[in-house]
Amino acid sequence: MFRPIIGAAVTVLLVSGCSSASTQQEGATRAVDTFLGEVKVPEKIDSVVILDGRRDQDIVLSLGLPLTGGPQQDPAAGYELPSPMAEARQAAAPEELFLENEVNLEALAAAAPDLIVCHEDDLGEIREQLQAIAPVLVVAASPEQTWQDDLLMVGAATGTSAKAEQLIADYDARVAEVKENYADEIAATKVSPISWSVGEGTGVRGARLHSRVLLDVGAQPADGFAKALETPDDSVRFSPEQTLEAHQDADALLVSATSAEEWRSATEDPLFGQLPAVRAERVVRTDRLTFEGGPITAMHTLGLVEQLYGG
């Protein structure tokens, strides 16, 4: 019964959105088919705004697009390790428009970007408003969508396809190199990428970027990792008591602990200390910044994986 009203409202909205957008964008546009249907992106892009700061930022930075605005990385989050994207971000020096996870539409509108790149989970309830501000490219639209897919999509939308393909080729070459250099190690080592949180034990998620990178080099998953890959949402959690039981068979562990406090609680934990991988000192620490990302983060993670195999 209310459908027609809603439909009319949406139409009005879209029309007004298009009219305001068209006055800003003079000149030719490039049409791409995306998760949100066909998106018309201006050929000349002077400013790109991101909403999340993970895969969207990585892709925009690595393609060399003019990143002018994005979220402020929460200073109190306690990131102890430097971000893989720190250098590229510093060069682009985007304006900090709002806090992580708290998109401010007005600040976004005031920045008047030519293009918005965001994650599917930022879209939530503000999809229509975003589309009214600027064309929107959505990355990580589904768990199956890899960063490579998104990189190619954004590349096609912004006329940087060649660069996108080059980045993927670079990554593949690095993967091949690691595979070759550590062939025996990789075959003989059972690994698991685990995350540690204070008082809540450990968790493994197959969809995380560092899990994907491990699989890319042909890593042998330990039990916890294998279990996570079998579940429908690619993830498994273990309580503090199960730390040893769950990761007993792992020869090497990639442990993500974001803050100094988290890492301290892990190293002081009696069960964590008994893990064979920890005793053999085959642990590489990372943080939640390698959960998700694009080419820059993937290359950084490859370095960590190399360390895990003794590099």
């Binding site: 409202a9 949406v10 909205l13 309830e125 999809r127 229509e128």
Partner: peptide, 20 residues
Amino acid sequence: VWLTGTLNGRSWAELWAAGA
């Protein structure tokens, strides 16, 4: 996000549905 009770980011479509 739902539990915090915010009016942030509401669109016209939602307004019409709510009003109706």
